[in-house]
Design a protein around this nucleic acid. Structure first.
Length: 235
RNA sequence: UAGAGCCUCAA
């Protein structure tokens, strides 16, 4: 089963659901039954292709076949609902999950917080974050990044900076994504200088820039006609 | 063996 599941995942990642089904057929011919990982992989594949409802249907099928659902299966559905802006449905699914006595973990909260932030509902995101902490799950850079992105996208760059500084003061380790989000936030507000400031701060923090960092910075520098600085950055 | 985050561009 393990081998089949691995191959299945390959097709699912490529969105080749017809091929994926052939793998399942072959499993059955070999007398192997699909397990909960087979199901989750298929659900993920359908969601990946944009067919979340088929994913939800397969989750029901798992239930009716007596499979014990787990947190990962729910996370796949939750994250894809959130990606499509269906956060309310995701929250309902969270209730269902808890009614099955499954404890949401960091990744579950992370996708939901991200979903709210993408909708600009920062207050709800922060509320969820508090709820998470009350269950002794501490936010990591995925969660902080989501909140910062939400603030930046609303143009609340000062709030974002305050949030970031609080994290720094509490010596929470920041990763490259968090820096990229802030740098891009400044660039979008037309404040390249602050963006460059953070870029330098990254260096002292020992965080290496990526192509995303440079895309944002170059975009900002070119937009504000600082071509010399842009060239300088490229060397 | 299955689950989460950043920019640009394309549609």
């Amino acid at each position: 089963s393990v081998t089949y599941n691995i191959i299945l995942n390959g097709f699912c990642l490529m969105g080749l659901m017809v091929e994926a089904w052939k793998v399942v057929q072959r499993m059955l011919l070999q007398g192997l039954s699909p397990d909960y990982i087979t199901y989750t992989t298929l659900i993920s594949g359908h969601c990946h292709r944009g067919d979340i409802d088929e994913g939800l249907r397969m989750k029901e099928e798992m239930l009716s076949r007596g499979f014990q659902l787990n947190v990962i299966t729910f996370t796949v559905l939750l994250s894809n609902l959130c990606k499509r802006g269906r956060v309310d449905e995701a929250m309902q699914l969270l209730d269902e999950m808890e009614s099955l006595c499954l404890d949401p973990d960091l990744q579950v909260y992370s996708v939901l917080i991200h979903g709210y932030c993408k909708q600009g509902k920062i207050d709800r995101a922060i509320h969820l974050c508090k709820r998470m902490r009350s269950k002794k799950i501490m936010p990591n850079s995925f969660v902080h990044g989501a909140i910062l992105l939400g603030l930046c996208k609303k143009g609340m760059i000062l709030e974002a900076r305050r949030y970031l500084d609080t994290l720094t003061e509490s010596s929470v380790p920041m990763d490259i994504h968090v820096y990229n989000i802030m740098i891009d936030g400044y660039v979008k507000m037309g404040d390249v200088d602050e963006a460059i400031g953070l870029y330098k701060q990254m260096d002292t923090a020992g965080v290496a820039p990526t192509i995303v960092t440079y895309n944002s910075l170059l975009h900002g520098l070119c937009k504000s006609r600082k071509l010399t600085e842009a060239k300088e950055l490229l060397r």
